[in-house]
């Protein structure tokens, strides 16, 4: 069984109480000649939403795959819930695997099963002693909890839209009530409304279920809106982990381009306007917001 920092055993029916559910140390990943990660360190705090950003090809997905044990790193150590992912033998892995949920980019739903049956798969795999009745109920409420309509439960993945597939994938990722949730570009390919709704859902679920979320994204709005901290991948390493405002102070060219580029600024203004709207309902304030909106659109045109 895994141990937390105090060296205490983590019981089967106990939640992880350590500070850092994910600890990556000295991770090196190389494919032949091509080195993706070199001596990379990262710690994820319990209960936070950690955004992971980086240009294309900086190995965000490889990092996630390494942490969840799909990609054996060339060197380095990865501890999840205080236990090494790399050294643990597959039999033992079950202690970690039923404590995390993974949402892959395309949803990765099993296409021959309905959404409800997809959610049931991990339940059947890990807890065969749960009676079918309860398992069906769990599948149903997880589907609803993920923001899908009830009827979606007996639909096949091919009958769902892209956004619904993501939600169905999320429902499956949440099937075991994980403590750790991995999201790989959850808002990619969604329309802005769907993306904002998904962001809200992620934040709500994190708060209600007490999740720790490892979130790979390109979506600046997501970063501003819901991420507690953001890890920036560049030069084969995590060059900074901090809140967005603090990151914007940093003097790294890529970070500056990323957060202070036109899109970065737009996301920031949007967030500021949201904030204003939230706090002020008075007509005067509304007027100010309108004026700001106009000024902003003029600036964009210019």
């Amino acid at each position: 069984m895994a141990q937390d920092e105090t060296g205490r055993e983590l019981g089967r029916h106990e939640r992880y109480r350590g500070d850092y559910p994910i600890v990556v140390e000295g991770l090196t990943n190389a494919f032949g000649e091509q080195v993706v990660h070199q001596d990379l360190d990262l710690k994820v705090k319990r209960g936070e939403i950690l955004g992971v950003v980086g240009g294309s090809g900086t190995g965000k997905s490889v990092l996630m795959r390494s942490i969840i044990g799909l990609q054996r790193p060339t060197e380095g150590d990865i501890h999840v819930f205080g236990r090494s992912v790399i050294d643990s033998d597959p039999e033992e892995d079950i202690g970690i695997r039923n404590r995390w949920g993974v949402l892959f980019q395309g949803g990765a739903l099993f296409s021959t099963l309905t959404v409800g049956e997809n959610v049931e798969v991990p339940l059947k795999q890990f807890y065969p002693d749960i009676e079918p009745d309860l398992r069906h109920e769990i599948a149903r409420y997880k589907v609803v909890l993920s923001g899908l309509p009830e009827e979606a439960v007996n639909k096949y993945p091919s009958e769902l839209s892209g956004g619904m597939k993501k939600r169905a994938g999320l429902a499956r990722a949440l099937a075991l009530d994980p403590e750790l949730l991995f999201l790989d570009e959850p808002t990619a390919g969604l329309d802005p409304i769907g993306a904002a709704a998904f962001d809200n859902l992620t934040r709500e679920l994190k708060e209600t279920l007490g999740l720790t979320v490892f979130l790979i994204t390109h979506d600046l709005d997501t970063l501003h809106e819901i991420c507690d901290r953001v890890a920036v991948l560049a030069d084969k390493q995590v060059i900074a982990v901090d809140t967005v405002p603090n990151l914007m102070e940093l003097d790294h060219p890529w970070i500056q381009d990323y957060f202070n580029g036109p899109r970065g600024r737009a996301a920031l203004t949007a967030q500021a306007l949201d904030e204003l709207r939230r706090h002020m309902d008075e007509p005067v304030a509304a007027h100010a917001v309108k004026a700001l909106d106009k000024a902003n659109s003029k600036k964009d045109k210019a």
């Binding site: 309905t114 409800g116 049956e117 149903r140 409420y141 439960v153």
Partner: peptide, 9 residues
């Protein structure tokens, strides 16, 4: 939340 939709198609 209450739902009695069938899980299977």
């Amino acid at each position: 939340i209450s739902s009695d939709e069938e899980i299977s198609a």
